[in-house]
Amino acid sequence: MTLIERNMDQTSLPLVVVPNCVPSLSEPLLRCIDRFDGKARVQLYAQPKDVTDPAELVARCTGADAVIVLGFHVTDAMFEALQPSVRCFAFGGTGIANYVNVPLAKQRGVRICNVRHYGDQSVAEHAVALMFELAKRTGRMDAQMHKSGWPGFDAIQLGGRTLGIAGFGGIGKATARIARGIGMNVMEWSRSSHAAEAEAMGVTESPSLAHLFETCDIVSLHMTLSAQSEGIIGADLINKLRPGAMLINTARSQLVDSPALLARLQKGDISAGLDVFDAEPLPDDSPLRGLANAVITPHNAWRTDAASEGIVQQCVDSVLAWLDGKAVNVVV
């Protein structure tokens, strides 16, 4: 671990702490750290891998006025331990409801900021990569080829198949554009209508979420997590998936009834590409690790060079705005 500090001799300035920063994020942060000159002291903890130990993270943030949160959850216990000092949390993600207790922050008058549309293309590409792995098994063949033998699998052509997109925001639209580019039919469902945009993209609107699950070969989730959407993909919808269907989730695990999905996967007649989980890191004894019909990645969809740059810039913008008495990307 390397501790990088700026302006620490100016003790009258507020303290901004970045307690967990991997190289892909520390490099763009260092490029813009001088923006805090004259406004705040900065402590940036850079290390090769994410630190997730709550006690260590709290210790690093003790005395901070603002915290830039990258790659970890702020539990209620952590939140309370950092009060009344920390008055602003800037999260490097969009859907923050499962990263911090938003009602608690609102009650305590603590500002919560997020980042927006920083990784639409990156997450969309990862969602499509999961589809390709399920359809082509390229990664599995590569792993076996590096060991020995001449493995081969019967693959699925994605062109001509129907992709259902649940949530037609920035990521959903980016996914649709990629899918249309490889010859897929695309159907979308959202709580609000996007008829004009969908038509312009050659995308069909689904009359209901149930219809999307019943009729599509692949369903990809791109909804934000909220009180209204938590658990929206229940056992009834999961069981509407036709045999051979794929479910892709690069959004939030809490959208889905995880036990119901596990039961359907264990039945063996569908497959899934998952980048998000109820518990992160995923426990070593998770039954998902033993399922050949599940492609699982460690919440990595957002981690590209372009997305990292966008995350850092927006987090810095949010904290600087808070220091200046202004508002950028404020959730609470």
Rank of each mutant, 00 (worst) to 15 (best):
Leu134Glu: 08
Ser190Leu: 00
Ile270Val: 14
His299Ala: 06
Ile171His: 08
Ala251Asp: 09
Leu247Phe: 10
Val16Ser: 08
Met187Leu: 11
Val58Cys: 12
Thr138Arg: 06
Ala90Pro: 11
Thr11Glu: 08
Asp285Arg: 11
Ser229Cys: 01
Ile232Phe: 03
Leu13Phe: 08
Ile248Val: 15
Asp305Val: 14
Ala321Cys: 04
Ala279Gln: 15
Glu133Cys: 02
Gly93Gln: 04
His222Gln: 14
Asp53Ser: 10
Pro103Arg: 02
Glu230Thr: 06
Asp278Glu: 13
Arg6Asn: 05
Asn20Trp: 00
Glu56Gly: 09
Asn98Gly: 01
Gln266Phe: 01
Lys106Trp: 02
Met184Arg: 09
Val102Arg: 00
Pro298Phe: 00
Val102Trp: 00
Gly172Asp: 05
Phe213Tyr: 11
Asn7Asp: 15
Leu320Val: 01
Cys21Thr: 03
Val330Ala: 12
Thr215Tyr: 09
Lys147His: 14
Leu323Met: 02
Ile33Gly: 03
Ile96Tyr: 04
Gly169Asp: 05
Gly268Phe: 02
Leu29Gly: 05
Leu288Ala: 08
Ala306Cys: 04
Ser229Glu: 01
Phe213Lys: 06
Asp65His: 14
Ser253Tyr: 12
Asn300His: 12
Gly71Cys: 13
Cys32Thr: 15
Pro54Ser: 08
Val58Trp: 09
Pro283Glu: 07
Gly231Trp: 04
Lys106His: 07
Arg87Ile: 00
Val256Met: 07
Gln47Met: 12
Pro281Asp: 02
Ser286Val: 12
Leu82Gly: 05
Pro243Arg: 08
His194Cys: 03
Glu280Asp: 07
Val22Asn: 09
Leu29Thr: 12
Gly95Asn: 10
Ala124Asn: 13
Leu3Ile: 13
Ala272Pro: 07
Gly71His: 04
Cys21Asn: 13
Asp236His: 13
Phe89Gly: 10
Asp236Asn: 14
Pro243Phe: 03
Leu212Ser: 01
Ala227Val: 07
Ala105Asp: 04
Asp275Gly: 09
Leu291Asp: 03
Glu309Tyr: 04
Phe168Ile: 02
Asp236Met: 09
Gly172Met: 08
Ser193Gly: 08
